[in-house]
């Protein structure tokens, strides 16, 4: 009888602890995804664009940089493309406009060229032939979008398809935070 009471008490304590953990745990309600790179200097990115121009992320310090990992056959990438085109159009009118770059993930230059010719978007497209950039950022699946501040620190990671207006609102928030 004593053992049964003790068992019931222990079960109740374990259940209460579980409920407490669920109540106080940090939910995934924020738009940004977790990454050990957040708040850290961005990894080095030295590559070429599909137009054979050299690109070094370290040389873009002084600008906000958005890297969008992309594949022309990935359905969410195709679906979010109009959002990116709209975002790029809005940023091009600002003096401190974001520099948007597509990081081509496991795709051919010709396929990327054809996609952008058909769907718009004149920002640079970076080659990542052996996946070094994807590994450096911990990108396993596309699309993913990363925001890097003018000092070269990683500020935001968004996994999956971008909803309309998300990048604009996040950039407003980040600009306000950096100027305060």
């Amino acid at each position: 009888m004593k053992a049964a009471r003790l068992g019931a008490l222990i079960s109740a304590l374990v259940l209460a602890a579980l409920v407490a953990v669920l109540v106080v745990s940090d939910g995934e309600s924020d738009i940004g995804a977790r990454s050990p790179l957040l708040g850290q200097p961005a990894p080095a990115v030295n590559t070429t664009t599909i137009d054979d121009q050299t690109f070094d992320l370290a040389r873009r310090k002084g600008s906000w940089v958005v890297l969008n990992f992309f594949n022309s056959t990935c359905v969410p990438c195709i679906a979010e493309h109009p959002t990116l085109v709209e975002f790029a159009r809005g940023e091009s009118t600002r003096a401190d406009g974001v520099e948007l770059y597509t990081v081509v993930n496991d795709d051919a230059d010709a396929a990327v060229r054809d996609f952008f010719a058909a769907n718009g978007g004149d920002w640079p497209k970076l080659r990542d032939a052996d996946g070094a950039i994807a590994v450096a950022f911990g990108v396993a699946k596309v699309p993913e979008t990363w925001i890097i501040d003018p000092n070269g620190f990683v500020r935001l990671r968004i996994i999956g398809q971008l909803a309309g207006g998300v990048l604009e609102s996040q950039m407003t928030r980040l600009r306000e935070a950096s100027s305060s």
Partner: peptide, 26 residues
């Protein structure tokens, strides 16, 4: 492999595993 179930990067042929293998080799 970050995109497959129960496979190591050594075994997997997924794109992410290929990228990690290339990075390890480098």
């Amino acid at each position: 492999c970050p995109t497959c179930d129960g496979e190591s990067v050594y075994v997997s042929r997924a794109s992410a595993a290929e990228s990690i293998r290339a990075e390890v080799a480098r």
